[in-house]
């Protein structure tokens, strides 16, 4: 074999090794870092497999379930969909637009709390909508949120 040929073969062999190794890395890493999007009932239906895997939990904030401790920055609420309900705990302030019965996505993992399943959230996102929606019944009108803060209203 000529020198050139050997070199070309060596180059191809090198490429195969590099690409193979890189593909293996990609495959392994993506498997470990997938976050599943699930609703409370889907998560509850999974039994023991639901615990301790990175999850995005999507649903509605249950009416009357929000407990917010502003001093300790400690937030507890229940996310529900249909019949599924899961208690959620998170550290840090909720977004201002966080309200009862609104759609939320919480990122974190399901833990075994004190006997009860508890979703420890690391990130709380309110579902944005691009389209205009008139305020629903029972929700505060937008301007109620700020009227009380306007000074010297004459």
């Amino acid at each position: 074999m000529s020198v050139k040929r050997t070199r070309t073969l060596g180059l191809i062999a090198g490429m195969v090794v590099v690409l193979g190794g890189f593909g293996y890395l990609l495959y392994g890493n993506i498997g470990e870092n997938i976050v599943f999007f699930r609703t409370p009932s889907e998560l509850l239906a999974m039994g023991a497999e639901a615990y301790d895997v990175p999850t995005r939990l999507g649903g509605q904030v249950k009416a009357g379930s929000v407990q917010w401790d502003a001093e300790a920055l400690d937030l507890r609420f229940v996310v529900k969909d249909g019949d599924g309900e899961i208690a959620v705990h998170s550290k840090g302030a909720p977004p201002q637009m966080f309200q009862t019965e609104m759609g939320v996505i919480v990122e974190g993992r399901l833990t075994r709390g004190d006997g009860q399943p508890l979703f420890e959230s690391t990130n709380l996102m309110v579902r944005h909508s691009n389209e205009y929606q008139p305020p629903k019944d029972g929700h505060p009108e937008p301007d109620e949120m700020y009227k009380s803060l306007i000074k010297d209203e004459s």
Binding site: L25, L26, E32, N33, I34, F37
Partner: peptide, 30 residues
């Protein structure tokens, strides 16, 4: 890497019917 991480959720939904997202740790590690 970026292409795979970006399109993976689409592929997973189309092929396996599951909704997933690829976390930032994947991108950072790779």
């Amino acid at each position: 890497t970026v292409l795979l991480g970006t399109l993976y959720p689409l592929l997973a939904e189309a092929l396996r019917g599951v909704k997933v997202s690829v976390g930032a740790p994947f991108f950072n590690k790779m």
